[in-house]
């Protein structure tokens, strides 16, 4: 098998990997922030509920969560049909998109899972800001919103960049799990070659991940440098 055609196939799979990565990140960050506010809520019921939710999501393997999101709705539906399977068909016949249903199921599971992890990072970051910062804002007449956006936020961002970069790099590699419910990401593509007894593309995928993670690391280093002018 020619190197060039393998590369081309893997790139197609990698595009799905990247899509999954970007969409998960973009959706999980705001959801995570929302969850972090809920776990810090003064209302005990809200706080308790969300603490349990975060515990469950972080306590169960992501692969299992993928299976649950993908299969459970079908098992519960009166028709017994898997809605993601139907979505698959619909997207394929109407829009020509392959595997759309599985991709959406993956996205749902990933966004929920990563939002839970992010929420704990955000909570840690927000709670690490000293009470004195809020009080200084308060005695200067700022509103709660102004204190959060103008005083606290930048300090939180600086604090959470190292743990966030860890989590985000893990996400890049976790996308490989999506193949268990049929998403054709880069490892799945390589696996299809492997089933034809061509093994080396599997190893070759490592280069794609390394390159991507390398670029991300550069980006995080850059941001950390940019924010190094102040200490929190």
């Amino acid at each position: 098998m020619e190197f060039f055609t393998v590369t081309q196939s893997l790139l197609e799979g990698f595009a799905v990997t990247c899509l999954l990565f970007v969409l998960t990140l973009v959706l999980a960050v705001p959801l995570g922030l929302l969850i972090s506010f809920c776990t810090m809520s003064k209302v005990k019921a809200v706080k308790g509920t969300f603490k349990v939710i975060v515990w469950v999501i972080r306590g169960v393997p992501l692969m299992l969560q993928l299976f649950i999101v993908y299969y459970l709705p079908g098992m519960l539906s009166p028709t017994g049909l898997n809605p993601f399977g139907q979505l698959d068909n619909f997207l394929y016949f109407e829009l020509g998109i392959d595997n759309g249903g599985a991709l959406i199921a993956t996205l749902i599971a990933f966004v929920i899972n990563y939002a839970a992890y992010f929420s704990e990072i955000f909570r840690g970051g927000i709670e690490s800001i000293s009470k004195g910062q809020y009080e200084a804002g308060q005695v200067l007449g700022m509103t709660k919103g102004q204190i959060f956006s103008k005083v606290v936020l930048m300090q939180v961002i600086k604090r959470i960049i190292p743990p966030m970069s860890n989590e985000i790099i893990t996400l890049v590699k976790d996308t490989a799990l999506a193949r268990v419910i049929g998403v054709i990401e880069i490892i799945k593509v390589a696996d299809m070659f492997a089933s034809k007894a061509i093994i080396w593309p599997l190893f070759y995928t490592g280069a794609f991940y390394l390159l991507f993670v390398g670029l991300l690391s550069l980006l995080f280093n850059f941001i950390e440098k940019k924010l190094s002018y102040y200490k929190v």
Binding site: Q138, V139, G141, Q146, K150, Q155
Partner: peptide
Amino acid sequence: STKFGMVFQNFNLFPQYNALTNVTLAMNL
């Protein structure tokens, strides 16, 4: 509450702003 001003024992300056912005921030807001 802005009838009173407060200077804290441990300053509580805003670390991400320079001295000038620490002073102007609340005025501008």
